[in-house]
Design a protein around this nucleic acid. Sequence first.
DNA 1: TTGTAGGCGTTATCAC
DNA 2: GTGATAACGCCTACAA
Lengths: 362, 362
Amino acid sequence: MRVTMHDVAQRAGVSIKTVSNVVNGYPHIRPETRERVEDAIEHLGYRLNTTARNLRTQRTDMITLAVPELRLPYFAELADSVIRSAEEQGLTVLIEQTGSVREREIELLDGRRRHLTDGVIFSPLALGQDDVGLFAVDFPLVVLGERVFDAPADHVTMNNVAAARAATLHLASLGRRRIAVVGAHEGELVGSAALRTEGYRQGLRAAGLPYDPTLVGEAGLWHRSTGSEAMGRLLDSGVEIDAVFALNDAMALGALHALHARRIDVPGDVALIGFDDVDDVRYSVPTISSVDPGREQIARTAVDLLVERIADGDERPFRRVIPDSRVVGRESTGDATEGSETVVAMQPGGNEEIEAPVSATA
Amino acid sequence: MRVTMHDVAQRAGVSIKTVSNVVNGYPHIRPETRERVEDAIEHLGYRLNTTARNLRTQRTDMITLAVPELRLPYFAELADSVIRSAEEQGLTVLIEQTGSVREREIELLDGRRRHLTDGVIFSPLALGQDDVGLFAVDFPLVVLGERVFDAPADHVTMNNVAAARAATLHLASLGRRRIAVVGAHEGELVGSAALRTEGYRQGLRAAGLPYDPTLVGEAGLWHRSTGSEAMGRLLDSGVEIDAVFALNDAMALGALHALHARRIDVPGDVALIGFDDVDDVRYSVPTISSVDPGREQIARTAVDLLVERIADGDERPFRRVIPDSRVVGRESTGDATEGSETVVAMQPGGNEEIEAPVSATA
DNA sequence: TTGTAGGCGTTATCAC
DNA sequence: GTGATAACGCCTACAA
């Protein structure tokens, strides 16, 4: 079989414990002993059995990142950032794709599949505020996004309303009066759609513009295709439009596509802004202005919170952290040419303790 | 502490082994015994300790997927596909980002960080043919891509030369005579760049067109930015160009950006085709024709090969599998309008045994 | 500074 | 069909 610490100990003429000490970098070892052990390790090609260590230490140094789909650029970039941050902390990331399927998200929380990673960073997309009870889990959990608030867990979210308001105001500041929105979810009260739509309304109000329901384009899933379709419907409806706020960048790219198909100039005839600031919008034609929700900071914060939670258990009250967000102006709002960009608005985030610790025994 | 099989056994009044049998779906159990055990499990909230099982069974049912970066759409989509395929086989995927850093790729192969997953699917980007020796590892490994051939491992690659040839011929079939290429790596003999460039030359030859070095645009990293820059250099050099073959889609998107910046119409003035067929090119303006290398099939095949290798060890000769690829025509080559697409060429793949089994004792 | 004993929670082997 | 018992490979006491 595979070579174990025992074999190494034997060959080095020391005890298994000494080998363990060497492997784990325990400082108080006589140099010559260490050397002998290291020689033996080298010679035998010994490699630590992570599984055995995990069993013994009750830790795996792995965390789960649960996202809807990696093909969605926002989540791919988020995953990238989370993996990097985790790595800095010596953690490995196991990615779970929920596909936005309700059962899969529930399964994730009921912990049947867990028990392998030390904690979970979870970005729900199917579960909503009604399911807040499901988030009372007995393992370290950090929730991402705006589907669920006040769950008994640490939470990293964004400044949706303020950022959407700023984006809308930015369009208004260009002199646009007929600002459409793409990606609304009618009747929803929580979630990104509701919050960003609320920000949109606030922005209109602040700019002295009326809210016109005929300018609201619905789109269930926030994909490029749905953005294109929603934009198409708005344009074909005949309403006058001189600016569009797409509630995420995928839809902004889709909307741009629909605009182009109808030979409508951006930003000449219609200005366009998205949300998420994914890489794509920096290379579209024209480049698209967007709201940077602070993804890098979201990832780092999520990992930090999870690490703390793993260390402290439920000793600490839960926290909600909101990174700073900013509106980045590019060609689609006439803010830049040749691929440059400008920060045209900044919303500070913040963080708060949201609740007393909860005894987490399931 | 946590509830164990022992607790369940006690409560159900059976032995620990019986609990194990129930949990693992062992068939020969008296129904009433099973029921008592299941009740106890339910009651105590027992959950199997995966780590302990892993230690005992010497398997983790996890595999590693090592890719350069998830922010690159091609790899995000690949990861997505791999995760889905793995899941169908009951496997969980642990993603490792190498960042195309040579040391990280070597580290991956020397197995210091491994020993936790049952096998590895590895898409190298820094290592090359000279490093083929490093691929003689003592764990199940499936190699992806065209950086390294004839490594002692299963290999899933693509029909690069034939596909690039077909893409070039497709541009020629539109009557284009001045076909530029973006993303070449001068002096390289292996790797995607070399193979696709070779296909480009073959395509020119087949179309009766001369090879003109002034039409070759170099780009080290295949990102949107480098594609844009390479395209810009070509255009600014003053050479006549009526078509562009970008060696991947990211560069095609960048090239499109550069073309647009110079008010050059696509496909009117310049036709454009990419490679990879990522989601992005279906929503750019105009939509971009591309080569679909069969990514879905690549992912599925890689997982299948790895599963077989895990089961069989080195009993089987290594295999090389090449999925079918096809050229997908879209607006950028005038093949479609309104987001539709056409398959304009198909290259069959194939698979072969490439080598006798190698005794894999490191 | 190093060694010994024991157990982490599970599965495998064998009896019964 | 079910139960005792010994691994799996490591780490944490504690002892020397």
